[in-house]
Design a protein around this nucleic acid. Structure first.
Lengths: 106, 106
DNA sequence: ATTAAATGATACCAAAAGGTATTGTAATTA
DNA sequence: TAATTACAATACCTTTTGGTATCATTTAAT
């Protein structure tokens, strides 16, 4: 039972899925429309969309017999949040570097 | 033959590897030191470190019989770079939202 | 010189991932 | 109503992944 973070990073780990996200950033699309951009069956694309949905990266709504897939910015921001942990790391190292440089500056 | 982006995202897809990155953000460590923090064999941890290295997320240097693993900020920044594609998406949506709100504001 | 410590390398295994094929179901349209 | 469209669900297959076990190699310590 993987947590939300894991579901999100797992979803991002496949190039097809990252490609789908970039497509959906342009406009929302049905399953068939997404599938038209890849050389694989719709069933395979649908699986990818399910993984993206589980990862909170897309939202799906039903309109008649169509399923409209839209990018979910909240999910992407959650992924970005993980990287914030390392902001401090970068800041610290940059601060050390800066102070080292200043030491050599009369 | 996966490209660098794929190697990077694949490396981030495993919770053990993300944990290793957070540990290495605190201080550099040998393989044995990293392995002490997980309930798996050193061989398994070494494999994870190789995946992280392939993904450009860590650097490894040899000191005698030890292999010192250090976080590679450049690799992390490359991963972050992928998300920049969506900046425009967010900005667009925010702009639309803003104009919608302003419509309702006399 | 021996022994112990740290790692490298390989073979192997079970489970998960990515994919196809097939069949079924609900919504449109002729 | 009948045919078509868009999707759901399942079974099945192959490759990759995450892990162990085992043995070899290099370096440090006694």
């Amino acid at each position: 039972m993987p947590d939300q973070e894991q579901l999100c990073f797992r979803a991002l780990a496949d190039p097809t899925r990252r490609g789908i996200l970039r497509m959906l950033a342009q406009r929302e699309m049905t399953i068939a429309e997404v599938a038209d951009n890849f050389e694989m069956t719709r069933a395979a694309v649908k699986k990818h969309l399910l993984v993206l949905s589980d990862g909170g990266l897309i939202a799906v709504r039903t309109e008649g017999r169509n399923r409209i897939n839209t990018l979910d910015a909240a999910g992407l921001k959650q992924a970005l949040g993980w990287f914030e942990f390392f902001d401090q790391f970068w800041d610290d190292r940059l601060a050390i570097l800066k102070s080292e440089i200043e030491k050599d500056t009369p």
